[in-house]
Design a binder for these strands. Sequence first.
DNA 1: GGTTACGGT
Length: 433
Amino acid sequence: MAAFGRRGCLIKDLQVDKFCDLVAEVVKTFYSHDTMDIYVTDYTENKDLFLYTDPDDPDVTENFGYPTAKNWRGPYGQITIMVHLWEPHASFTRLNINEGDIVFLQNVRPKMSQDGKLEAAIHQDRQYPEKICVMKCRDPRQLAGLQQRKLAWEEAQKHKKTGDDQNLPKKASAKASAKRKEKREQQRLQKELDQRELEEKVQASMQKQKQKEDTRAGLNLHVRAGFPDMNRISTIQEIVRNPYRHTTSEEGLPVKLPFINCKYKSHMRVVDMWPATLSDFAQSKGDPKFNPNVSDKDRRDGSHRYEWNFALLVEDAKSPAKSADERITLTFGNLQAQNLLKMDACNLKRDRTKLKELEEKLFILWGNLWERKVALWEEDRTKLPLPSDDPRLQLRNKPFECVIEEYGEPVGRGGEPEYWIRRFSTFNTTIMG
DNA sequence: GGTTACGGT
């Protein structure tokens, strides 16, 4: 995965041929057969950019021989750069990005146009031809900086029009000067306060926005996933076929790794679970059936030491799985389950209160899936999993956002494992009770 | 790898 914001910079700092990443607002798009131009701004000024003049600005009486943009709707000034997109970025952008969107642009290559105006291009990645370097930003922290610069720019434009900064006296006594200094200091403090307030407001509004989008996407707001700045949503296919598993050995031979330690952000729906008895979701470490390598210590106090041990079968929120390879199993050991449930394992066969609590928590996650699983079995011995849109299932559950962690489980005794099993679980994902 | 602050497909 590309390092996020490694070469992040602002339009004001762009230099020809110095690759960089930008977070910017799309103000205009134009496409033609297999390329696309996007005009983006991050509300910082670069004097090498094309000057878009405001036709309503009385100060602009002539354009000094520069071309004007007649139908330009703003923003005016030198804060917008044209970025020329080559495939595959062009198609992706044409389908997924609209004017007004905030985008994260990777590997932007600034260049000079023939008439000396700063422009940029995103070329096809030679090493990974499928890689898309245009992403829509949703994350509050990434958006906040841009929003602040936008507000600051708009504020500055307003002042420019009313001419506030021209009312300062040209000459002043020392006393007046000191007074002005004090006033400036006050203004500075006030500005700092305003800024902090603004930041909080932006944060709050972004969070609200994210919630709104999640609601629109039909996501379960009671399940919270960490890493809010990870906004690339992976599908099961992408996770299963992670291209980074294919690599090269020291001898230069192709190698397929059994697993990769990495994390994905996903939108998932639960379609089955294991084991088939809810009270078996926690197991005693002293039980040799569950823990074959049970130690004397475990056996001694085993009856009091319980661990979570269950699995969930999930599929993509957007597309009901057509085949088994469009689903993955999430495995929950003690740590992952504690994080998901915010509950400690215990003897669920004895503690009915905890069992009820678990049932209620998991209901939030999987809706009526459990009761349908039980009912279908009792009706005519129908077993899950079924396709999630199977009418018999009458499934009423909401997909949720989660961080999925991929890891390898070593198999074999002694030091060197004989082989590894590729496993998935959730990470930093919690059911909010 | 395409031409000029439009063109709006």
